[in-house]
Design a binder for these strands. Structure first.
Ligand SMILES: [Mg+2]
Length: 367
DNA sequence: TCTGGGGTCCTAGGACCC
DNA sequence: TCTGGGGTCCTAGGACCC
C-alpha cells in the first residue's frame, strides 16, 4: 500500500492531459477511401485461406457478420461469403500513417505512435485538452478522409479505455470522477495490458472486474501475476495508473521477418533456402537503416505449434551478410532433424548498433 | 477450416564481475 | 573458507500490443 501512495499522482480535479486516437478499421478504411466501389461493403484485409492467413482488419460492414481481427481467413469467409478479401498493402498504410503522425505533431509535439493507426497525444495545459482533441478529430476526418475514435483522460490506459468506449467515430472523456465510477465494473479483459491469458488466470480465481481486482490481496495478485504486472494493474484499477514519461520517435530494437509456409516442410535443404530469403530481407532492411546487429536469432514453429527460438550474440557486430547467413544456418541446424515438419520459420536481428548512439556509455552517463 | 506478422517488454536462471 | 549481495549481459520463453 505504501507504493500505492508513494508513486501515484496527486489527486487533482482538472488534469486531463492525455488524448488517445484510434483510426477506425484502419487498413479497411484506407482501402474503402481509395476505392469508392468498396464503400458500404464488407471488406476484409489480411491473409487468404490458402496461405493459412488470418484477418488483419475488417470493415464495420464485415463485423456485422461476426468477422474479427486475428480470425482465420477461412472462418471469416464462412461467416461472410460476400466479403471482399484484399491483401495487406503495408507500404500504403504506412504512408497514410505518416500523414496522420505529421498532422498530430502540428497539434502537439508530444506524440507517441502505437503501431500504424493509434497514438497518444500529451497536452501541456489540461484546460485545452478537450478542445485540442476535438480539433484533432475534425482534422483527421477532414484531411485524411478516415474517421477515428478519440478518448481523453488523465493517463494512457484510461484515455485508451475512453477511445474504446464509443466507436467508430466516437469521442469520450473520462475524468477522475467518471473513472472512479467506471473502473469497479470494467471487465478486466477490456483494460490495456490484460490479454486473454491473464484474464483467464484471474477469472479462475473469480476476479473478473476492476472492483474484484482492487479488493483482492496484493499478496495473492503478486503470486498469480508477478510483482510488476500485479502492481501495474492494481494501480490502474485504483484509478491511479503509473504515467511513464513521453517517449517519441522510439528506435527499433529489433528487425525481424517470419513466414508461415503454405505447407509444412521437413526437408532441411528446402528450409535452408527459405531461411536464406528471410535473412536476405532482414539484412537488407538493417543495412538500409545504416545499422549493424550483434545478435542473430531464428524461430521455428513445428506443425504441432510448438515454437522454439535460438539466438547467438557476437561481440563484434555482424558487418557481412555472409556471417549472418552462416549463424542463422547453424542455429536452424539445432532445431531441425529432417523428420519434424515445420510450419513457420523466422529470423530476428537485434542488439542493434546505432552509429550516432554509442553503446558503451555507463548508466550514470546516460542518466 | 484451426491458429499472421511486426514488434515491445518482462521473467528467470546462469555466467561473470565487484 | 563460507556467506552475501548487487549489477550486467546473455538466452529462452511467454504475454501483450496493433
Ligand atoms: Mg484502430
Amino acid at each position: 500500500m505504501d507504493r500505492l501512495r508513494l508513486r501515484s499522482e496527486p489527486e487533482r480535479s482538472e488534469d486531463l492531459r492525455v488524448i488517445h486516437l484510434d483510426m477506425d478499421a484502419f487498413y479497411a478504411s484506407v482501402e474503402q477511401r481509395d476505392d469508392p466501389s468498396l464503400r458500404g461493403r464488407p471488406v476484409i484485409v489480411g491473409g487468404t485461406p490458402a496461405s493459412r492467413g488470418v484477418v488483419a482488419t475488417c470493415s464495420y460492414e464485415a463485423r456485422k457478420f461476426g468477422v474479427r481481427s486475428a480470425m482465420p481467413a477461412e472462418e471469416a469467409r464462412r461467416l461472410c461469403p460476400s466479403a471482399i478479401f484484399l491483401p495487406t498493402d503495408f507500404a500504403r498504410y504506412k504512408q497514410v500513417s505518416r500523414q496522420v503522425k505529421d498532422l498530430l505533431r502540428s497539434h502537439t509535439q508530444d506524440v507517441e505512435m502505437l503501431g500504424l493507426d493509434e497514438a497518444f497525444l500529451f497536452v501541456a495545459n489540461p484546460q485545452q485538452t478537450v478542445a485540442v482533441a476535438r480539433e484533432v478529430k475534425r482534422d483527421i476526418t477532414g484531411e485524411i478522409g478516415i474517421t477515428c475514435s478519440v478518448g481523453v483522460s488523465y493517463a494512457r490506459p484510461l484515455a485508451k479505455l475512453a477511445s474504446e468506449w464509443q466507436k467508430p467515430d466516437g469521442f469520450t472523456v473520462i475524468d477522475r470522477h467518471l473513472a472512479r465510477r467506471l473502473l469497479p465494473k470494467v471487465p478486466l479483459e477490456q483494460l490495456w495490458g490484460i490479454g486473454p491469458q491473464t484474464a483467464r488466470t484471474l477469472k479462475r480465481q473469480g476476479i473478473e472486474t476492476g472492483g474484484d481486482f482492487f479488493s483482492t490481496s496484493t499478496r495473492q495478485l503478486i503470486k498469480m501475476l508477478g510483482p510488476g504486472r500485479a502492481w501495474d494493474i492494481a494501480l490502474l484499477c485504483a484509478g491511479r495508473p503509473l504515467s511513464p514519461r513521453v517517449r517519441r520517435d522510439r528506435r527499433a530494437k529489433s528487425v525481424s521477418r517470419e513466414t508461415t509456409l503454405p505447407n509444412d516442410v521437413a526437408d532441411p535443404g528446402e528450409l535452408e533456402s527459405i531461411l536464406r530469403e528471410l535473412v536476405d530481407d532482414v539484412t537488407a532492411r538493417v543495412e538500409e537503416l545504416d545499422l549493424t546487429a550483434m545478435t542473430v536469432g531464428i524461430k521455428v514453429r513445428y506443425s504441432n505449434f510448438r515454437t522454439l527460438t535460438r539466438a547467438r550474440t557476437d561481440p563484434t557486430p555482424y558487418h557481412k551478410a555472409e556471417a549472418i547467413h552462416q549463424t542463422a544456418r547453424e542455429l536452424l541446424g539445432e532445431l531441425i532433424d529432417g523428420r519434424q515438419t515445420v510450419r513457420l520459420l523466422g529470423v530476428t536481428l537485434s542488439n542493434l548498433d546505432y552509429p550516432d548512439m554509442p553503446r558503451q556509455l555507463g548508466f550514470e552517463l546516460v542518466k
